Simulated assay, not measured.
Amino acid sequence: MTDLAAPGAELTLPWAGRADSHCFGCAPANPVGLGLRFRPGSDSGIVTDLCLDRRFESYPGVLHGGIVALVCDETMGNLVVLRHGTVAVTTSLRMRYVGVVAIGGRYSCHAWITGAPDGTIAGRAEVRDVHGELMATATAGYRPVPADDAGLPRTSPRGEDPT
């Protein structure tokens, strides 16, 4: 597990630097991805900053809501990996949009773990602008999955449990 206590320090994900890591949200090697980077936040959470261009636009000047959801899911999911030392898949994601996330605007997404009921891990995320105005909230559930020696999820061709 990673120490989340070092304020301001960029957090390193377990698969960082791997040539085969092409996560749309966080892999720096993905030329069309978001390239999100994470740092410790308050209350044992993590934070990522975002300022996205028109490639991710919905209505003119507005960031697509699906991209906002992706940022929230990515931030919560990576917190699960860093805090619990396990890979987990999203089992549910609920979004609430309360403001407009503008193309070219500066925002941050802060995520926290809120519990671990029934073998899943629950998270919460908020997207805020530079003035602290709330733009969106998310809640999600994550299920830990078996991982290989590199910390990546093991998969099977037909969805059977690979263990």
Results as ranks from 00 to 15, higher is better:
Arg37Gly: 06
Asp118Ser: 15
Leu93Glu: 03
Thr114Phe: 12
Gly105Tyr: 11
Glu74Arg: 11
Met76Glu: 03
Arg124Thr: 10
Leu63Tyr: 02
Leu70Val: 07
Thr91Cys: 08
Ile67Lys: 11
Gly85Phe: 01
Leu52Tyr: 00
Asn78Pro: 04
Asn30Phe: 00
Thr75Asn: 09
Gly123Gln: 09
Asp49Ile: 04
Asp73Tyr: 00
Thr120Leu: 15
Pro31Cys: 03
Ala111Thr: 04
Val62His: 01
Tyr107Gln: 09
Gly104Lys: 02
Asp43Ala: 15
Val62Asn: 05
Leu50Met: 12
Pro40Glu: 08
Val32Asn: 00
Gly61Cys: 07
Asp53Cys: 06
Asn78Gly: 01
Gly119Arg: 09
Pro117Val: 14
Pro28Asn: 07
Leu36Ile: 10
His110Trp: 13
Asp73Phe: 00
Met95Ser: 10
Cys72Phe: 03
Ala111Cys: 07
Asn78Leu: 00
Ala102Thr: 07
Asp73Lys: 09
Thr91Tyr: 11
Ala125Glu: 06
Val100Gly: 08
Glu126Ser: 15
Thr120Asp: 11
Gly105Leu: 12
Phe56Pro: 08
Ser42Phe: 00
Val80Thr: 02
Arg94Ile: 10
Ala116Ser: 13
Met95Cys: 05
Gly65Gln: 12
Gly61Thr: 07
Pro28Tyr: 00
Gly105Cys: 11
Pro28Gln: 06
Arg128Trp: 06
Ala111Met: 03
Val32Lys: 09
Val87Gly: 15
Ser58Trp: 09
Gly65Glu: 05
Met76Pro: 01
Thr114Ala: 14
Thr120Gln: 14
Val80Cys: 05
Gly66His: 08
Cys109Thr: 12
His110Tyr: 12
Leu63Gly: 08
Arg94Ser: 13
Asn30His: 05
Val62Ile: 14
Thr90His: 08
Ile67Glu: 01
Thr90Gly: 04
Met76Trp: 08
Glu126Phe: 12
Val62Asp: 02
Glu57Phe: 04
Leu52Lys: 03
Thr91Trp: 12
Cys109Lys: 05
Ile46Glu: 01
Thr90Glu: 04
Val89Cys: 04
Ser92Tyr: 12
Gly99Asn: 14
Pro31Ala: 09
Val101Thr: 09
Asn30Asp: 13
Glu57Met: 13
Gly77Glu: 01
Asn78Phe: 01
Leu70Asn: 14
Ala29Pro: 11
Ile103Gln: 02
